[in-house]
Computed example of a mutant assay.
Amino acid sequence: MLICDGMGAAGYGVYGVEPSTGKVAWQLPDTQADRIAPKITTAWRGRVYGTTPNGAIALDARTSKDVPSPHVAPLLVNESTGIVLNDGLVAYPTSG
């Protein structure tokens, strides 16, 4: 899934785009579902990480559904470490 975010005519939005077809699979904000668009920080292995006024979140890249969050929004992540900017760079272990 290709994740796009940025400002448009309607304001800030986040989109999940199917790369093989170019069709939008989901978009946030979604006023009908009462969901806001997070500020995206990074993505890794099907998870999209970001921040909202309510804190850090993680989304499933294919569906935009909430998934268990590490309660931080990493700027970089790999199979072993997430790097977060929090009064300096802090490394958090990942679960894989």
Score class of each variant (00 low, 15 high):
1 M>E: 07
3 I>K: 05
5 D>R: 07
7 M>L: 11
9 A>I: 11
11 G>F: 12
12 Y>G: 08
12 Y>C: 06
13 G>K: 12
13 G>S: 15
17 V>F: 07
19 P>R: 08
20 S>A: 14
21 T>W: 04
22 G>L: 02
23 K>D: 13
23 K>T: 08
26 W>C: 01
29 P>E: 08
29 P>T: 05
30 D>P: 06
34 D>K: 07
35 R>K: 14
37 A>C: 11
38 P>A: 04
40 I>R: 04
44 W>C: 01
45 R>W: 04
47 R>T: 15
49 Y>I: 01
50 G>S: 10
50 G>P: 09
53 P>D: 13
56 A>F: 10
57 I>R: 07
57 I>C: 12
59 L>Q: 14
60 D>Y: 07
61 A>W: 09
63 T>F: 03
65 K>D: 03
69 S>R: 09
71 H>F: 07
71 H>P: 00
72 V>T: 11
72 V>Q: 09
72 V>M: 04
73 A>D: 12
74 P>Y: 10
75 L>V: 13
77 V>I: 15
77 V>P: 01
82 G>P: 06
85 L>Y: 15
85 L>C: 12
85 L>A: 15
86 N>Y: 12
87 D>P: 01
88 G>N: 12
89 L>C: 05
91 A>P: 06
92 Y>A: 06
92 Y>M: 13
93 P>W: 03
93 P>L: 05
93 P>C: 05
93 P>H: 07
96 G>Q: 06
